[in-house]
């Protein structure tokens, strides 16, 4: 059975993780190389996680770190003066 855009999309994760059987991988690569739509799709499939990672980076505010220590001090014997 030849690879279509749809069947290729189903395989993308496994492809990027390197767990496809060699002949399936070769068929997928051949399809994508000859299909501008899939080439564009794969690029955005790879790029989306990075965009979301960069957009959801959270710094720990100093007051939250202080609250954490206060909380642990109230519940346990850590962060006490010694």
């Amino acid at each position: 059975m030849s690879t279509t855009c749809q069947s290729g999309v189903d395989l993308l994760m496994d492809y990027l993780e390197g767990v496809l059987a060699p002949e399936v991988q070769a068929a997928l690569e051949q399809h994508v190389a000859g299909c501008p739509k899939c080439t564009a799709f794969v690029a955005s499939y790879r790029e989306a996680p990075r965009v979301l990672r960069d957009a959801t980076i959270a710094a720990l505010p100093a007051n939250r770190a202080a609250e954490l220590r206060e909380f642990l001090r109230s519940k346990t014997d850590v962060f006490r003066k010694r």
Partner: peptide, 11 residues
């Protein structure tokens, strides 16, 4: 089983 959108639209 072909993408409906164009390459430009897909990326």
């Amino acid at each position: 089983g072909v993408h409906r959108a164009t390459p430009q639209e897909l990326s």
